[in-house]
């Protein structure tokens, strides 16, 4: 197991390098000279050249890349072009907000998705199954910003139960988490259902039954653990979507998170912040995938250790 994890960690190196190259090229592929943007429309060529020199933009691209990687490895992303504050100072507080939002939403998705999926599968074709699947279809087809707006309209504005914006208190957290977590819950519910149904018809479930086990034991001990294997994969994929969805959710609920920060800074062409933000998201995504692989491995003994 340790060997497996170490190997997977080593395999991350090329992946992260690739991510870095893409993030780095973003700045050089977008039209317009950053130095010009910082200096402003009316700046003289001298001022622009000065800024270029200060930022190292006059050096050859491979050298720039080398510096970028070196600095990124120590989490030094330079200073924001907009506020001149160190990027990490700007990023970290917002990163935690976004991470919180994502993790709570994920937990929401997993708990509700799996519970609904299991109920559906165990009582296939019952009214419970039909309604769960209907709700899931609904949750899946609804764009999450729309769901957010609707929730806000109903529960915050009409009923006044929750504050419409902000982040921090439990009442502020609930609506954004539902907004962001619903589609994931729907996907997980559907996956859990079909995976459970598939497993329930397997020979080893019949063996378990022939042994004289109770249905409950068969469902939770024998079926669920096998059914989770594909569900875990889906959960991993969901997390990527979650980070993207967080941007919209943050905008709807005016949450000061990383998504909002990145959107704002893209508009302002504040590349160091954008680059750092995207890189952080990519790294988180890659590590979540690693976690998924490890739990996958843990669940599925058939995957070869080597």
């Amino acid at each position: 197991m340790v060997k497996f994890i170490v190997r997977r960690l080593l395999q991350l190196i090329p992946v992260l390098l690739g991510v870095t190259i893409i993030v780095f090229s973003l700045m050089h592929l977008t039209p317009g000279n950053p130095a010009q943007i910082i200096a402003g429309e009316s700046a003289t060529p001298e001022t622009v050249a000065q800024i270029e020199k200060r930022l190292g933009l006059d050096e050859p691209i491979p050298v720039q890349f080398f510096h970028f990687v070196k600095d990124a490895a120590t989490f030094d992303f330079g200073n924001s072009w907009r506020t001149s504050l160190p990027v990490s100072t700007e990023l970290w507080p917002k990163f935690w907000v976004t991470l919180e939002l994502a993790i709570y939403s994920m937990i929401f998705s997993i708990v509700f998705g799996m519970a609904a999926g299991i109920i559906s599968a165990v009582r296939q074709y019952s009214w419970a199954d039909v309604s769960v699947m209907l709700i899931a279809l609904f949750g899946l087809s609804m764009p999450n910003f729309w769901l957010g707006l609707m929730l806000m309209q109903w529960f915050s504005i009409n009923l006044g139960w929750f504050p419409p914006t902000g982040w921090g208190s439990a009442s502020q957290i609930l609506l954004p988490v539902i907004t962001l977590g619903t589609s994931g819950a729907a996907v997980i519910a559907r996956m859990t259902r079909s995976s459970m149904l598939d497993v329930i018809s397997q020979d080893y479930i019949r063996t378990a039954r022939a042994k004289g086990l109770k249905e409950r034991v068969i469902t939770y001990r024998h079926a669920l653990k096998n059914a989770l294997i594909p569900v875990v994969t889906v959960i991993g994929l969901q997390f990527g979507g979650l980070l993207a969805g967080a941007v919209l959710t943050e905008s709807v609920f005016s949450i000061n998170g990383m998504g909002k920060l990145i959107v704002d800074r893209i508009l302002a062409r504040d590349f160091p912040v954008v680059q750092a933000g995207i890189l952080v998201i990519a790294v988180v995504f890659v590590f979540i995938n690693l976690l998924v692989d490890i739990s996958y491995k843990f669940l599925n003994k058939r995957i070869d250790m080597d």
């Binding site: 397997q202 020979d203 080893y204 019949r206 063996t207 378990a208 024998h222 653990k225 096998n226 669940l299 599925n300 003994k301 058939r302």
Partner: peptide, 10 residues
């Protein structure tokens, strides 16, 4: 089917 009659995860 002995190949599929045992639960693979236990």
């Amino acid at each position: 089917e002995p190949m599929t009659s045992l639960n693979p995860v236990y």
